[in-house]
């Protein structure tokens, strides 16, 4: 990492520290009501306490489990359906309008329906994550395969490559590129699905805790949870970014 980037990070950290210090002093001097706007120290204390007591673990496990399962299934099915639709025009005729409609609506409105169908357990959360991710992935793969670079297809054919070689050398790498380009968005969607699902009805999970914190007017717990979700999603973004950079290393930066 260059000195320039270190400088950028140092300035950002400094700005954050200044904002937090102002916030803290405003709360300490009574300019803002801690009931509505608890100081960073109080929020930090709750975060520490949640981990120290171990209370947070089952909730983290529930949310992560639902989000990652929804993400994995959504990507797998999205790729599969996208491939199938691109290769079999009849299926595309049926699939495309359904996907287009699902794409047009805010898919979180399906949460109540999934809870009626699948109960308040993890199933309804996985389903919501899944539906958010699968539509995104489907379009990335479907559109991607349809405008795969025909020059490359011809190149491989004139070099004696058959269908299998085409899939291996052209289609799969293209699909990987499109899916990777959407991976960060998909991670965000998967967490949205899991947390919103828990928020609507659940007995565990960060979304469930959030809904509990809201119903008891506990602003510090609410902010602590928002902070935690942000940290975890950022962590997964970083992992996704590393995977993307590795798999798309041929693109350069």
């Amino acid at each position: 990492m260059s000195m320039k980037w270190l400088g950028v990070y140092a300035r950002r950290a400094l700005a954050l520290a200044v904002v937090l210090a102002i916030w803290e002093s405003l709360a300490a001097n009574g300019y803002v009501d801690p009931f509505y706007m608890p100081p960073p120290s109080a929020i930090g204390a709750i975060v520490v306490d949640q981990f120290a007591s171990g209370d947070i673990w089952p909730h983290l496990q529930a949310t992560f489990g639902a989000a990652l399962l929804g993400l994995a299934l959504g990507i797998l099915f999205g790729i599969f359906l996208g491939f199938v639709a691109a290769l079999i025009p009849y299926l595309a005729e049926l699939l495309e309008p359904v996907m287009a409609m699902l794409n047009a609506i805010p898919r979180v409105i399906l949460a109540p329906l999934f809870i009626i169908w699948l109960g308040i357990g993890i199933g309804s959360k996985v389903a919501l994550s899944f539906i958010l991710v699968v539509v995104l992935t489907f379009f990335a793969v479907y559109n991607g395969i349809r405008d795969v670079d025909q020059r490359l297809v011809e190149r491989v054919r004139t070099l004696g490559g058959g269908r299998l070689v085409l899939v291996r050398e052209v289609y799969i790498p293209s699909v990987v590129a499109w899916v990777m380009g959407n991976l960060k968005v998909a991670v965000g969607f998967a967490f949205t699905g899991a947390v919103v699902g828990e928020f609507v009805a659940a007995s565990r999970g960060l979304g469930y805790l959030l809904s509990y914190a809201q119903s008891t007017y506990n602003a510090s717990l609410t902010m602590a949870l928002i902070f935690l979700v942000m940290v975890f999603v950022l962590f997964l973004f970083t992992l996704a970014g590393m995977l993307e950079r590795y798999l798309l290393r041929w693109k350069g930066s």
Binding site: R155, L159, A177
Partner: peptide
Amino acid sequence: VAFLFQDDALLPWRSVRDNVALGLRNR
């Protein structure tokens, strides 16, 4: 029969070596 195209599109995700090796692998 070999065909040299007008543009120089190579498989961008394969190394230069693997681009050249592809025809041999196909055989």
